[in-house]
C-alpha cells in the first residue's frame, strides 16, 4: 500500500492562468447586449402600452363625461326654451298676454322694397350684343 503516500502529481506546478492582457471580445459583448435588450424590450413595450392604456381609458372616460354633459346642456337649453318656461319668465318681467290684434286693411300699395347696396346684389346678367342686320354681316366677307 506504498502508493498511498505518493504525492499528487502536478500539485506544485504553477497555475498557468492566461492573463497576458485584458481584451474585450466585442462580438460576445454585442451578443450579450443584444440579449439584454431583447429581454428588456417586452418589459419596455409592456410599460409603454400600460401607460398608453391608462391614458386612453382616461380619455375615454373624459369623452363619455363630456358627451353626457353635452346631452345635459342640450336638455337644459330645451327646458329653458319650453313654452311654459317662456310664459313664466314673461309673467315675471311683467308681460301680459296680447289682446285681440287690430288688423287694418290699407288700399295703398305697399312700400317699394328697400334698395340693397350694390355689393349685395347679384351681378347683372350679361346683355347679348345687338345682332347686326343681315346686310351689315355681308360686309364682313369683303376681302379688304
Amino acid at each position: 500500500m506504498a502508493a498511498i503516500n505518493h504525492p499528487l502529481g502536478g500539485v506544485r506546478r504553477p497555475l498557468g492562468l492566461p492573463i497576458p492582457g485584458f481584451r474585450i471580445n466585442w462580438g460576445v459583448a454585442a451578443a450579450v447586449a443584444f440579449l439584454l435588450f431583447a429581454a428588456l424590450l417586452p418589459v419596455l413595450q409592456n410599460s409603454f402600452v400600460t401607460s398608453q392604456g391608462f391614458d386612453v381609458q382616461a380619455s375615454q372616460r373624459q369623452q363619455a363625461r363630456l358627451r353626457s354633459e353635452i346631452s345635459l346642456l342640450e336638455a337644459d337649453v330645451a327646458r329653458l326654451t319650453s313654452q311654459a318656461r317662456i310664459e313664466r319668465r314673461a309673467q315675471e318681467i311683467g308681460l301680459v298676454k296680447a289682446g285681440d290684434p287690430i288688423y287694418v286693411t290699407v288700399q295703398e300699395p305697399g312700400p317699394a322694397p328697400a334698395k340693397l347696396p350694390a355689393e349685395y346684389l347679384p351681378p347683372p346678367a350679361p346683355q347679348p350684343a345687338p345682332a347686326d342686320s343681315w346686310w351689315k354681316s355681308l360686309l364682313r366677307w369683303r376681302p379688304w
Binding site: 358627451r67 353626457s68 346631452s71 345635459l72 342640450e74 336638455a75 330645451a78 326654451t81 319650453s82 313654452q83
Partner: peptide
Amino acid sequence: ARRGAILDRNGGVLATSVD
C-alpha cells in the same frame, strides 16, 4: 347608443335623452 330626440315641426324639443 344615444336614443334619438323627438322635435316638433319647428325644432322645439319634445323628448330627448340624458345620461
